[in-house]
């Protein structure tokens, strides 16, 4: 599964993995803004932004092919709407949209590949995201896989009873079975949330979730921020008017 792959990438011994999540988030946003504000994607711009993303891939020792393939997740949406633009006669704009969304997704993937989710969420809080939202996202991420596994088990149980077979005639009962399964999953999730709440209280939780780490930005992190911002701004301004 996707997150297992990202996990493996997170553990690689790259320079990018060692950097502070805040630095990576800032550079990612700068890259995305630079890309989003490009008036038009010239071939030089594609090369420039592609090179920046590749630098990220190299510094994180990420598999180039893997990043390239997984960034393709945006293509269904991008191609669908680009097809509309293309049909309207603006072929250049259509290609522009596809490449732009692909490059953006690749950049997000590079940062995700080099940064564990909890660190990134903390960085978002540092950037001003509401604390409550970030905590919800933390718990969402923590129990995402636990519950997915549970859902997977239920799906297997359903399959083993032959619930995938049968034609249109049976679809009503199949729906009822699927609805029932989700209701069970819902109830179990609620019970689990209550149990988590109890476990937090049992260990002395009294309304405030304290942070363990208050990491300092190291020299390398500042290098990343400075280089990232300069390169993004440079590519952005250098190429916007080159063509």
């Amino acid at each position: 599964m996707h997150h297992v792959v990202l996990d493996e990438w997170n553990r690689r011994p790259g320079w990018l993995q060692k950097r502070d999540a805040r630095a990576k988030l800032v550079v990612l946003l700068a890259y995305l803004v630079a890309l989003a504000t490009m008036p038009r994607l010239t071939p030089q711009a594609v090369i420039g932004f592609g090179a920046l993303a590749s630098a990220g891939v190299a510094s994180g020792r990420l598999p180039a092919l893997g990043v390239a393939l997984r960034a393709g997740a945006v293509l269904p949406f991008a191609l669908f709407f680009a097809a509309g633009v293309w049909l309207s006669g603006a072929t250049g704009k259509a290609a522009d949209l596809v490449v732009r969304s692909y490059l953006s997704a690749a950049a997000v993937l590079v940062v995700m590949g080099a940064t564990p989710m909890p660190g990134l969420l903390r960085a978002m809080e540092w950037l001003g995201a509401p604390r409550f939202l970030v905590q919800v996202a933390h718990f969402l991420y923590r129990y995402l896989f636990v519950l997915s596994e549970q859902a997977q088990h239920m799906r297997l149980a359903a399959l083993s009873r032959g619930l995938d077979r049968g034609g249109f005639r049976r679809s009503r009962s199949l729906w009822r079975a699927a609805g029932g399964a989700l209701a069970v999953l819902f109830a179990r999730s609620q019970a689990r949330a209550e149990a988590i709440h109890r476990a937090m209280l049992a260990r002395g939780y009294a309304g405030r979730l304290a942070e363990l780490r208050n990491e300092r930005m190291e020299a390398g992190d500042w290098v990343l921020v400075a280089a990232g911002l300069l390169l993004c701004a440079g590519v952005r301004t250098g190429l916007a008017y080159a063509g």
Binding site: V136, L140, Y143, L147, G167, F168, G179, L182, A193, H197
Partner: peptide, 27 residues
């Protein structure tokens, strides 16, 4: 809500993710 309600909200968010693995047949 209660003070550690984010646990509930987070878990219910995870539920929505997990629920997307249960497919409803359309024929």
């Amino acid at each position: 809500l209660e003070e550690s309600r984010f646990a509930l909200l987070g878990v219910m968010g995870a539920f929505v993710f997990a629920a997307q693995m249960v497919n409803f047949p359309l024929g």
